[in-house]
Amino acid sequence: MKSVLRRLALALATVCMIGAGPLHAFGEGGGDLVVFDWSGYEDPLLHPAYTTKYGAEPTFAFFGDEDEAFEKMRAGFKADIAHPCSQSVVKWREAGMLQPLDTSRIAGWKDLNPGIMAMKDLAVTADGKAWFMPFDWGNTSLLYRTDKVTADEAQSLRIFADPKYRGRVTIGDNVDDAYALASLVIGLKDWTKMTDAQFQEASAFLRDVHKNIRFYWTDDTDLNQAFIGNEVDLVWGWNETYVTLKGQGLPIAMNRDSKEGISTWVCGYVVMKDAPGKLDEAYDFLNAVNAPAVSDYLVKTFGYGHGNGAGMAAIDHKVLADRGFDNLDKFLDKTLFQQPVAPELKQRMVAEFEKIKAGY
C-alpha cells in the first residue's frame, strides 16, 4: 500500500505557476502526455500498460478540486487528459473544453458499469457522442477516531456541528462535498431539486460546522496526517483515507450507515479539446486505466470502485464486501449522488461556501 510519506513527496514535487502566459505544471513523470489529475492517481500501478508501452510515465499536474481545475484551464493551462467528476462534466463540456471520445479506440468500453453509463447527460449525450469515461467511484462519508468518538455518537451527520468537537473537525475544501453533507443533513437526497429555503437551511448548517473546523482539507495527505497526528476526531472524507489509515493500525471507522446517509461520487477521464500532446498516447492511457486488472488494485489500495464492471466482477467477494461494494442496490439506497446541478445553483453554492469559510 502506498505510504502517506510517498504521497507527500509526490505532492511536494509538483510545482504550478501562473504567469502572463499558460499555466505550467511539472509533476511525476515527464512524458509527452500531460494528465491533469487528483494527487495520488499518478500511481504507476493504475496505468501499467501505458508505462510498459512508452517506457516512461506521463507528466502529471495536480488540482485540489474541479472548480480550481476549471479556472486554471480557462487561464491557459493545457493538458491532454483530465480527471473530473460527474457533477462537473456538463459544465466543462458546455464551456467547450472537451472533445468527444472515439469509443472504438477504448478497449473494454462495453464493459463499463451500465448503471454509471446510464446517468443522464454524463457519459453519452442524446446525440450519441461520448464525452466521459468513468474510472473511479466511491463515497464521501463520516470518518471518526474510535478512541475519541463512540459509534452511537457517530450515528448522525449532525455530529459535525456538535460544539463538543470544536476545533476537532475537518471537511474538504470542496463545494460539492460540503453541500452534499449539508443536503443529507436537511433530508435532501436529490440536490438538483434544491429549493431556495433548502439552500438557506443547508448553508446555515455549514456555518455551524465552520465553528468546529480545525482546517479545510485539500489533499488526502494533509487529511491523513491530521488524523495520525491526533489533530482531528471527525472527518467528512473519502474511502482512501479509511483504507490507508486502517491498514496502518489507526483506530478509525467509516460510517456507511449514518442516519442521514452518505454521498456517492463518480469520477473519470476526459480528453481536452485543445490537447497539445499526442492523441494516440491519450487513448493508450485511457485503455491502460480501464484495464480489468486495474480493478483489484484500485479497490484494495484506494477503497474505490472501478468503472470497468468486468474487472469488478472478478474481485474476491470478501474484498468487495469489506469495501461495501458487494450489494450496489443497498449501497445506493441511502446515498446522495453528486450529479450535475444547474449552473446557477452551482455558482450560488461556490459563492456561499467562500463566505462560510471566511466566517461570514
Rank of each mutant, 00 (worst) to 15 (best):
Y41L: 13
A182W: 00
I171F: 06
K110A: 14
Y297L: 03
L8Q: 13
Y216K: 02
K278D: 15
P100L: 08
K278F: 04
S104W: 02
G324V: 04
G307A: 12
I252S: 03
V294K: 01
R105M: 09
D111Q: 11
A313F: 07
L33M: 08
V350W: 01
P84H: 03
G247S: 06
V232K: 10
K91S: 09
W92N: 04
W92G: 04
D173I: 00
K300C: 12
K259N: 10
A151D: 13
F60W: 13
H306T: 12
E201Y: 03
A118G: 13
Y54E: 08
W191S: 10
I262W: 05
D176C: 03
G311V: 08
L320Q: 06
Y50G: 01
M17H: 11
I81L: 15
N287I: 06
F132A: 02
Q339Y: 12
C16A: 11
E57T: 03
P251L: 12
A197E: 15
L245A: 04
A226S: 13
A130Y: 07
L33E: 05
I18F: 07
D65V: 04
H47W: 11
N174I: 02
F215Y: 15
V266P: 00
T218A: 08
V124E: 14
E352R: 04
D67F: 10
V232R: 11
V15W: 06
Y165A: 01
G247V: 09
D37G: 01
F77M: 14
H83Q: 11
N287W: 06
A197I: 08
A9E: 14
R93C: 02
I213D: 00
P58Q: 09
P48V: 04
G27D: 05
N255W: 03
G115N: 05
A49T: 06
G172H: 07
Y50R: 02
Y242T: 01
N255F: 05
L5V: 11
N113L: 08
L12Q: 14
M272K: 00
S88P: 00
G108F: 10
D147F: 11
Y360Q: 14
D208P: 00
P22V: 08
I315G: 05
D219C: 09
A313P: 05
A202G: 04
V341R: 03
A178F: 02
W137D: 01
Y165V: 05
R256S: 11
Y304G: 01
N139A: 04
D65K: 08
A202S: 10
W109N: 09
L328D: 01
D127R: 11
M117N: 11
D257W: 05
N239Q: 11
G311I: 02
G303L: 09
I81M: 07
K2M: 12
L298H: 06
K355H: 07
M97P: 03
E42R: 08
M272N: 07
E201C: 06
G64I: 05
T170G: 01
I106P: 04
R145E: 01
D329T: 13
R158F: 08
L286P: 06
K110P: 00
E281D: 11
L10G: 07
Q225R: 13
Q87S: 13
T244P: 00
A291H: 15
E354T: 01
A197K: 14
K53V: 04
W131P: 13
S156P: 07
M349T: 07
L142C: 10
S3C: 03
V243G: 03
G309Q: 09
W92H: 10
E281K: 14
T59H: 08
